[in-house]
Amino acid sequence: MAEVHHSEHIPKWKKDEIEDIKNLIESYPLVGVVGIGGIPAKQLQSMRRSLKDVAVLKVSRNTLIKRALDESSDDIKKMDDFIEVQTALIFTEQNPFKLFKLLEKSKSPSPIKGGMITPNDIIVEAGPTSFPPGPILGDLQAAGIPAAIDGGKVVVRETSAVAKAGEVVSQKLAAMLTRLEIYPLEVGLDLRAVMEEGSIFTPDVLAIDEEQVFADFVQASQQAFNLSVNAVYPTSENISTLLAKAAAESKNLGINAVVFEPDVMGSLLGKAQCEMMSVASAASGKDEGAVDDELKE
């Protein structure tokens, strides 16, 4: 793969390829570097097709990509840092955040192959499997998966991490994980960086916390509503609350200040009655003869 042709005589197809990439760089406001490791050729084709209306995916050799970047602007040259292993370029007129979301959504779980390094811990959960007893039991155990027979089925006895992030996954384990339908990898176009107008955006910036955005909108709407009511700026949205607030304040004042208005008399009478009952109860607790019979129920 690592073809190192530093000679002056570059074949024409390579020159054309470099020119092609440079043209793309010039025609799109946004250039992204994506990792395409682990994507089967067929899947890559279908991804390319599904992106057709949004972005152009250009798969090429890293040496040619680098050459094209180097021959473009100084800004674009900075994207060199992200060219490693299996790489493609993506070109779009899209908002980089939208592009990132789109590519993230295109990722799907995929089996890991023997000899590969797992990017995250691989956990095998305790529980039944679909296998009847047989040689598979030994294979699972040999791969380090705590399998046993239970009720005529192969089961995983306990949940355990069978490989830690950064470890190489053995052939045996990889095969068993696949049979258990455990797919530790996320395969898809992995956006490493995009450049737009000289600025580089990496996934840590591109990943939007949508829950936070939603929460911000909730908070902002509340703040706006609070302000509108507290500043008494009547609108069709808050007028009911303003009226209710005024009505409640009026009622409170009427009762608390004992203002004899027909609308609060019921409340005042109820309050008095309740107080009377309570005091009567306290008094009869001391001496039953202190209250009349109608209060003794």
Binding site: A283, K286, A290
Partner: peptide, 13 residues
């Protein structure tokens, strides 16, 4: 009697 009783009872309330 009732008045007396009430007053006495309320003394401690």
């Amino acid at each position: 009697a009732r008045a007396k009783a009430l007053v006495a009872a309320l003394e401690d309330v």
